[in-house]
Each structure stands twice: as C-alpha cells, then as structure tokens.
Write a protein that binds this DNA or RNA. Structure first.
Length: 436
RNA sequence: GUGACCGUAGCUCAGUUGGUCAGAGCGCCGCGUUGUGGUCGCGGAUGUCGGGGGUUCGAAUCCCCUCGGUCACCCCA
C-alpha cells in the first residue's frame, strides 16, 4: 500500500460514508424545519471582499487575526467566510429583496486558529436570517425554529441561555460603566483577565476563572442599563418563549462572539458536553449590521449552528444515528456482468435502490458484497437463469422469509416492487432518521 | 500564537531497561469440490513503526527539527 503523499490540512477533515449519511440526514432535517417556516435557501460566494467580514468595532483585531485572508491575482483583498451572517447581509444589501427576507444557509466557515475538539479551521454551519422585522416575535420565531431543529435531531439535554444587549447606545453606555467599574477593581481580578477587563469588559464578566467570578459578583449588568424600549422588547421575547413552552435560562453575562448583536442574544448549550467549545447553536438580533454594510436601516435576527458540534452533542446523548440499509436490491451476476448492468438500470428506473458488483467477481464475493450492502434481497443471475431468461430472488434479511424464488425477467420488476413495498421509502429521500 | 501529552497495518491497539519488535484483534482478499451472504475453519495481502536528521555495533524504543492529532490558555460554531 502506497504511503499517502498528502493529508488534509491542519484543522480540516474529510466527511465520508458511512459518517456522511448523518450529514445528509442533518441537512435534510434542517431544511425541512426551516422551509416549513417560509425560509428559502441562499447560496452565496465562499469568499468576499474582506470588508464584508471585517468592520471597525471592538473585536476587529481578534476577528482579523483569525481570518483566512489573502490577495488574489487581481490584487483584491479577499477573505474566506468566517461565519454565515455577513455574507447574507451583503447579498441583502446588494439585491434589496422585499422584506421580511427569510433565508437559510448551509456552508463551510473558516477560521485560522488552533485546533481542538469541536473547533476546526474549516467547520460547517447551518443557519438562518430574518431581515426586515423589528418585531420581538421575530426573535421568538428564530429561537423556536432553532429549538425545533435541535429536537428534530433528537437532542433533549440542551439548555437555552438568553440575554439582551439592548440597543447600540444601551450597550455603549453599559460597556463604559462596566469598564470603569472593573478598572477600579483590577487587582481583584485574576491576573490573566485584567487586560481583557479593559479591552473587552463584557468578556471579563464571562470569564471562567474563579477569582474573576467572585470579584465580579456585584458587577453592573446590562439589564440595569437598558432603555425602556429595550426592556419592553426583551420582555416581549421572553413572554413569547413562555407562551410557546420553550424553557430558557436568563444569562445576564452571556456574550456572543460578534460585536454586531443588539437586543436578544442566545445560545443553546448541551449539558452533557464538558468542554469549552460546548455551544452548538447561537444567534441573536443585529439591527445595526445592515447599515454598517451600506444598506438601509434594517432590523434583523438569526442564528448559526456548527454541524461538527451538533454531531458531538448527538453522540454524547446517543441520538441521531442513521440507518445503514440504504439499498433495496443487490444484483449478483456471475455470467460476465451484462445482466447486472441492464437489470440494475431497469430496477433503478422504477425507483428502487439498487447496486451491483463490478469486475466479474465470484459468486461468493458478490454474495458477501450483497450482504454488506444491506440490501433486502439479492437478484442472482447465473448460467441457468441466463439460459431461461429468469433471475433468482434471494431474501437476505429474515423478515422477507427464507425462500428463494425463480422469477422470469419479464416480471422481475413487478415482483420486486411488490415484495419490497413494505420497506420502500419515498424515492426522493434516501435518508431516514432513527433515534436509538 | 503559548504550553502539556500523543503519532506502530484501512480501524482499535500490544511492543518489556535500545539487540528476531515488525505483532494481535477487527476489517479486507481467497479457499472449505465444480453457482449462494451472515456463523465457523484454513490460508493470504497490506506498514521503509508520521517525516527528516542525529547518537549507537544496533532505534518503533534515546536526542533534535518538522508535520499532524488531543487537551488547556486564547478565541469561538
């Protein structure tokens, strides 16, 4: 066996069968949930002018450091998308579709950072955005869809944490007050958090260090610096969640990674996953971002969710395994392969899931392949069948009985369609979910 | 970017203080009389022991560099 000359770059990974079946199923579940709520798919470029992702704000340095950016051959400063929202907003500003604009996406996202579990240089996200609605009910819809999606995966041990950032002005006032408050107490903070307290005061409140935690128990919270309208918005969101029966924890110290959030911010965190990269889905309202990208003042809310982390959480709960029997029929042909070729095509044409062996392998090898394929029945063509224009139909799984039947080729399709009817799935969907 | 640990067949891993240490299980391929899978039996293939350099009579085993993985910091999906 030749030694591999190349391997996937640091922080990237290949998703292959059988694992990729879960990805198919996850995407199918996601698109099903959101399309029923009126969201349509957006496919936008994987790279943009860097300004789309890099704006003047507090966190710009960190964002820039982790950006996969480069100059293309035309001298343009390009960056690979680090998250989904900015691209969608750019497309919105460029095309100015009617609002409310409700769209979803599934995309790779790139961040140049060090790797650990649930954290990659190329990871994959699904998400959605609702642009053009300031209504707190829009926040509620977005959160409800997130919850519905997680439920569809079978996840149940997940907590919703919710917070509000208020308006841009509320937030600015609060951050100033907090910075001053922390500045007076720097010595009490954990040494590692002191610089952060001045640069990113809200992040300091989010610190996991015990010393910082206890030093900031009385720190001012965003909730005390909200305008009346902001309070009203948040209360309406919480009322909506209550009404829909969606449980949540108020998390006054919750800080999201991007600075563009206003009002509602939220995260879904699995309680069973014990590491720093636990958040599987997060989002919130970003009423200022559209203007920042040159569009008209437009309120908006959305979420993004990392597929790799979702699957880690599913594994931790033992849910969302995908059934492996993805074939109805396996055609075994020991006469050279011409029959396999034609029968396979004919059966696929009527919607059956069919595979065969290549390279004219022996009977035993082909039967083993048939068994491994998970097919319900094997259709066998040997010399005898070929002479009599028939096929042997052999059940491979117990609930189809043990009897092997000889069926004329002319009625093979009818025979198989009838026999397989009980287990056939809709031919337009080739994945099924099965919770353990 | 900083630090810790790790890197042996496709997969999961054994390899004692450097001297038949290149292995096991699973998987894969073939065979078990001439055409039938799953169980069982027999046989077989696959690795320059992540890569490069060094120490040594001799290194998978020690040292250095490098690439990759895991974890923590950082940051975040």
């Amino acid at each position: 066996m030749a030694r591999a000359k190349f391997q996937a770059p640091k922080g990237t990974h290949d998703v292959m069968p059988p694992e990729s079946a879960r990805w198919e199923a996850l995407l199918a579940a996601y698109s099903s949930v959101v399309s029923r709520a009126g969201y349509g798919l957006v496919q936008s470029p994987l790279f943009e002018e860097i300004g789309v992702f890099q704006r003047d704000s507090e966190g710009a340095d960190a964002v820039r450091k982790e950006m996969y950016d480069f100059s293309d051959k035309g001298g343009r400063h390009i960056a690979l998308r680090p998250e989904g929202t900015a691209s969608v907003v750019r497309a919105f500003v460029q095309h100015q579709p009617p609002t409310p604009w409700k769209v979803w996406y599934a995309t790779p996202a790139f961040r140049y950072e060090n790797v650990q579990a649930g954290r990659y240089r190329q990871h994959h996200q699904v998400g959605l955005e609702l642009l053009g609605a300031a209504d707190p009910d829009a926040d509620v819809e977005v959160i409800a869809l997130a919850a519905e999606f997680l439920t569809a995966l079978g996840l149940s041990d997940v907590k919703l944490q919710i917070n509000t950032m208020g308006t841009v002005e509320d937030r600015r006032r609060y951050v100033d007050a907090l910075r001053t408050w922390l500045g007076d107490r720097l010595d009490a903070l954990a040494p590692e958090d002191r610089e952060k307290a001045l640069v990113h005061p809200m992040r300091a409140l989010d610190s996991k260090r015990r010393q910082t935690r206890s030093a900031t128990v009385d720190a001012p919270l965003i909730g005390d610096h909200l305008s009346e309208a902001s309070v009203g918005h948040f209360e309406r969101v919480l009322a909506g969640l209550d009404s829909l029966g969606i449980a949540y924890d108020l998390a006054p110290r919750l800080v999201r990674g991007f600075d563009y959030y206003t009002h509602t911010t939220f995260e879904f965190v699995p309680s069973g996953v014990d590491n720093a990269q636990a958040t599987i889905l997060g989002g919130g309202r970003y009423d200022g971002l559209i203007e920042e990208l040159g569009g008209p003042p437009t309120p908006a809310v959305g979420f993004g969710s990392g597929i790799e982390r979702l699957l880690i959480a599913c594994d931790a709960e033992g849910v969302f395994s995908v059934r492996q029997d993805r074939l109805d029929v396996f055609v075994v042909d020991v006469t050279g392969g011409s029959h396999a070729r034609d029968i396979t095509a004919a059966l696929r044409a009527v919607g059956l899931r069919v595979d065969r062996s290549f390279d004219n392998r022996g009977m035993r090898a082909q039967m083993k392949a048939a068994d491994r394929s998970g097919a319900a029945v094997a259709v066998i063509i040997g010399d005898r069948e070929a002479e009599s224009a028939s096929a042997a139909v052999r059940p491979l799984r117990q609930h189809f009985g043990a009897e092997q039947a000889i069926v004329p080729l002319t009625s093979l399709v009818d025979h198989l369609t009838r026999v397989l009817a009980p287990i056939r799935t809709d031919p337009t969907t080739n994945t099924e979910l099965e919770n353990l």
